[in-house]
Design a protein around this nucleic acid. Structure first.
Ligand SMILES: NC(=O)c1ccc[n+]([C@@H]2O[C@H](COP(=O)([O-])OP(=O)(O)OC[C@H]3O[C@@H](n4cnc5c(N)ncnc54)[C@H](O)[C@@H]3O)[C@@H](O)[C@H]2O)c1
Ligand SMILES: NC(=O)c1ccc[n+]([C@@H]2O[C@H](COP(=O)([O-])OP(=O)(O)OC[C@H]3O[C@@H](n4cnc5c(N)ncnc54)[C@H](O)[C@@H]3O)[C@@H](O)[C@H]2O)c1
Lengths: 213, 213
DNA sequence: CAAATTTTGTGAAAGGAGTCACATAATTGA
DNA sequence: TCAATTATGTGACTCCTTTCACAAAATTTG
């Protein structure tokens, strides 16, 4: 298998396979075929095999895939086997919800810091949400704390007007990954990765499907 | 222009164009070219024209597109010109955040009801979040209230274990569109539309890009 | 132990989506 | 009025993704 550019769709599906494999593992299955996994993930079986083939050979012909091994391999591919250290910036409604999102704990995504421009007003609201109290830190200490706590991903939940300047701060602090929930497009330099999560786009999509079916 | 299946990517981009056109309109521009819009949305100019061509001819050769008209046309295509009446089910951390999401007001997405299985514990927390107090209603009144308030879209923010059964209730209440935030795949019958929003997939994607660049 | 069965991995084919390039149409200005 | 300019709409082309189909490999069965 020689090097090729991997489609983004493949990466998204790997994440789906990962979730399904966890359920299959829970159910006590030791081995799974591409056909079974495909049915569960609602994709084509050849698609599953092709996706995996980008990264190597993980199955045994005539048998299938060992669930535990495949899950571990996929997590290694995705980079979700290591622990990712995250910060939330903007502890309002959405930021607070993210702080108390329990699934992050189960996965290897860990929120290790919370920032706001107005910490006193929010510090009471979020404490103890994650089991242990979360201290909300003033945004002007972002760079210092990001270094100290080795933050790798920043979740932006400030108003849209502030999103780009917060992203700039994250870049300055060498936080390489950004997930932006504010409805404005974020631009980061080469070497950094920013993804925008637009709720309205998702709703527009739904509205379109509802209007045209 | 004859009928064709419209790519989902086109619909997503139309939503993006819509957002950009709003900014352009705000800036007081009356006319925009496909090249200008494309630069702003970070896509190819021909892509913009192709996307629009699926639905008709909206521009004037040698001139460009009238911003106001194009915005209105795109919203008509997406179905986001009409008001969409939504309900949030599961008024915990995320559900409360959605209730107080101010951008829904600006767009034509309106939350007109909130449901939970344990209303007394949450009723105080969400009141007045949207300007006017929001009454949290017991889930067992979903069908009745959905009819009464003409609810068209349900946002599921319950624990994953409850997500499918809540979806079933929504289907029974003939709520045609579902946006599911719980990390579990929802299945709905023909004629209904369900979209899952998996936070972990988005993070896995980011993790992959950070691990491999 | 060999034939039958199962299921992977992968080249080839088919199907979609994105880009290019240019004819076409509107406008401007001399 | 007509040439020059501008920018759309779209056929053709390229590139990418998905599906098909089957040889290869492992296992099971008689
Ligand atoms: N509420 C939702 O459900 C929801 C959903 C999708 C997207 N969003 C987006 O997420 C963002 C936050 O939404 P919200 O409802 O939580 O708003 P919010 O007003 O409740 O919270 C914003 C927080 O950001 C803080 N802040 C402002 N400027 C800052 C800065 N420069 N640095 C650090 N912190 C700063 C504020 O003090 C406040 O605590 C918005 O952009 C919104 O559009 C919200
Ligand atoms: N918190 C986040 O930031 C976040 C982010 C992404 C996804 N999610 C997902 O969204 C969902 C909610 O997360 P949360 O953190 O708000 O959880 P939460 O526990 O704070 O809220 C869940 C709410 O749902 C209610 N509920 C339970 N069963 C119900 C039923 N059958 N009918 C109606 N209401 C019911 C509960 O009473 C509770 O109020 C979860 O599935 C979670 O995985 C949360």
């Amino acid at each position: 298998m020689k090097y090729q550019k991997i489609p983004e769709a493949t990466i998204r599906r790997l994440s789906r396979y990962s979730r399904c494999l966890e359920e299959i593992e829970q159910a006590g299955e030791g081995v799974v075929s591409s056909a079974q996994l495909a049915t569960r993930c609602m994709v084509n079986a050849a698609q599953v095999r092709k996706d995996l083939a980008y990264f190597g050979e993980f199955g045994i012909r005539g048998v299938g895939y060992y669930v535990k091994d495949l899950l571990s391999d996929i997590k290694k591919i995705l980079g979700s086997n290591k622990e990712w250290r995250m910060a939330v910036i903007g502890i309002g409604n959405l930021g607070s919800a993210l702080l108390s999102y329990k699934d992050f704990l189960k996965q290897n995504y860990k929120i290790v810091a919370a920032f706001d421009i107005d910490p006193p007003s929010v510090i009471g609201r979020v404490s103890e949400k994650l089991g242990k109290p979360v201290e909300v830190i003033h945004i002007n200490r972002l760079k210092e704390v990001a270094k100290e706590r080795r933050i790798e991903i920043g979740l932006i939940t400030t108003p849209p007007s502030e999103a780009q300047s917060v992203a700039d701060l994250l870049v300055e602090a060498e936080v390489k990954g950004i997930l932006n929930f504010a409805p404005t497009q974020i631009i980061v330099p080469e070497g950094f990765v920013a993804k925008d999560v637009f709720f309205t786009t998702i709703l527009d999509n739904l509205a379109y499907l509802l209007s045209n079916n």
